[in-house]
């Protein structure tokens, strides 16, 4: 009964993995015959500053995006967990951006972030704050994209945190209250430690999602200003499908995959020793 899966697996997993190992030793534009180049693609990676930059950018994105996401998701989850009316309505609204395509969000935010006519700068100007060059300055472009990604995804993590909050036994709070702990102390000494597993989940999911950053810079910035939003996937895409360097792109893909694999592994190790 698992035959269809095995067939599919060998065709779309085993074969591509094997073929990508072949590809990294070749130059190929798909149109003309493949050409063996030995380790040239590997040597090129080591001297390719733009690829290095794209890796750093991806890292910067994660470092901005993940903490912001956790803090905001926690903030909203704690509030939604109180006894409030219309909780369902709030949850529905917070979750809305999660289901919408990244393309929609990207086109929308391209307008919102526009320097002269964007809604965000219009609001800022109306309250007397200087306009911010969101997508067009080296300093702001990646934070803007990280902010947008957070806006899009945070609803999912609000739900996860709400699940986590509900699994905390109420007795813990009651006991703490008897000992005279204020709400701040209760949050930092009970809620946060009890939510640790959820935080881990959020981090793991965001890391995996963040590594595939592509459509946002593809549509909004083309990787600029000065390569500051060029993600690794966008760079690989350009090399492969714009410039026809399949072998080199496959090599970068392999390299990048090893990095992701390592990061995820290290994370697991860390989680196993620290949390459980």
């Amino acid at each position: 009964m698992s035959m269809p899966y095995m067939a599919h697996l060998s065709l779309f997993f085993v074969y591509p993995v094997v073929f990508s190992i072949v590809l990294v030793f070749h130059r190929w534009d798909v149109v003309t015959p493949m050409e063996f180049v030995g380790f040239k693609n590997f040597i090129r990676i080591l001297s390719d500053e733009v690829f290095l930059q794209s890796l750093i950018n991806t890292g910067v994105f994660l470092l901005l995006h993940i903490p912001l996401q956790i803090v905001l998701a926690l903030f909203f989850a704690v509030q939604l967990n109180e006894k409030i009316i219309a909780r369902g309505l709030f949850r529905t609204i917070y979750f809305l951006p999660v289901v919408v395509s990244g393309v929609v969000v990207t086109i929308l935010f391209q307008q919102l972030f526009s320097f002269e006519t964007g809604l965000i700068n219009q609001f800022l100007f109306a309250v007397g704050i200087d306009q911010v060059p969101w997508l067009v300055s080296e300093k702001w472009a990646m934070p803007s994209i990280a902010f947008m990604a957070t806006w899009k995804n945070v609803g999912l993590y609000v739900i996860l945190f709400m699940g986590g909050l509900q699994s905390i036994p109420p007795e813990l709070y009651e006991a703490a209250e008897l000992e005279g702990a204020n709400s701040m102390q209760r949050f930092f000494h009970i809620t946060l430690p009890m939510l640790n597993p959820t935080v881990v989940t959020v981090v793991v999911l965001s890391v995996i999602g963040g590594f595939s950053l592509f459509i946002e810079p593809y549509v909004m910035t083309g990787g600029g200003p000065m390569n500051s939003t060029l993600s690794a996937v966008l760079y690989i895409y350009n090399q492969a499908f714009n410039f026809g360097h399949m072998g080199y792109a496959a090599t970068m893909g392999l390299f990048f995959a090893v990095i992701i694999f390592t990061v995820v592994k290290v994370q697991r190790k860390f989680i196993e020793t620290e949390v459980y």
Binding site: Q110, S114, F115, E116, T117, G118, P133, V136, S137
Partner: peptide, 8 residues
């Protein structure tokens, strides 16, 4: 020239 991506 504005240093921006003008919309429209």
């Amino acid at each position: 020239f504005p240093q921006s991506t003008m919309q429209g």
